[in-house]
Amino acid sequence: MNKAELISAISTESGLNKTESKKALNAFISSVIKALVDGDKVSLAGFGTFSVIIRQERPGINPTTKASIIIPETKVAKFKAGLELSNLLK
């Protein structure tokens, strides 16, 4: 499902028109992004939790030159499915 299909699904489920659904989806996405950038978690009961984890610096290999390199520490967005969602996917 892409963004346009998700907007249509939101519109159908909520009774909002597509313009309102697009605004709601964009507001949700920007709110989650802002929270993650600020270092917060976003927990939606039954659905899941969005958070940021730090991947530690680690050794790696450049596939072109086969030289050893150090991959720097990075922050990565993470999603962990909630219990209800996990049970529905079984």
Rank of each mutant, 00 (worst) to 15 (best):
A35W: 06
S51W: 02
S43R: 10
G60F: 02
V42E: 03
E13L: 12
A27T: 13
N87H: 10
S31C: 08
L16S: 09
L83Y: 13
S21V: 05
I69N: 05
K75A: 07
E73H: 01
G82Y: 02
K23P: 00
I29Q: 14
T49A: 02
D38S: 12
L83N: 15
K34F: 00
I71W: 01
T64W: 01
I54F: 01
S68N: 12
L44P: 07
P63A: 05
K90I: 06
D38R: 05
V52F: 02
N87T: 15
K78E: 00
K80M: 05
I70R: 11
N62L: 04
I61P: 04
G15N: 07
A4G: 10
F79H: 06
A24T: 12
K80D: 10
I53H: 11
F50P: 08
T12W: 02
E20V: 01
R55E: 08
E84P: 01
L25N: 05
S14F: 09
L36F: 09
L36M: 04
G39I: 08
M1P: 13
L16I: 08
G39W: 02
I54E: 14
Q56P: 06
S68M: 04
S8C: 04
N2W: 01
S86M: 10
I69A: 00
I10A: 05
L36N: 06
L6S: 08
P59G: 00
L85V: 11
N87M: 10
N62I: 09
S31K: 10
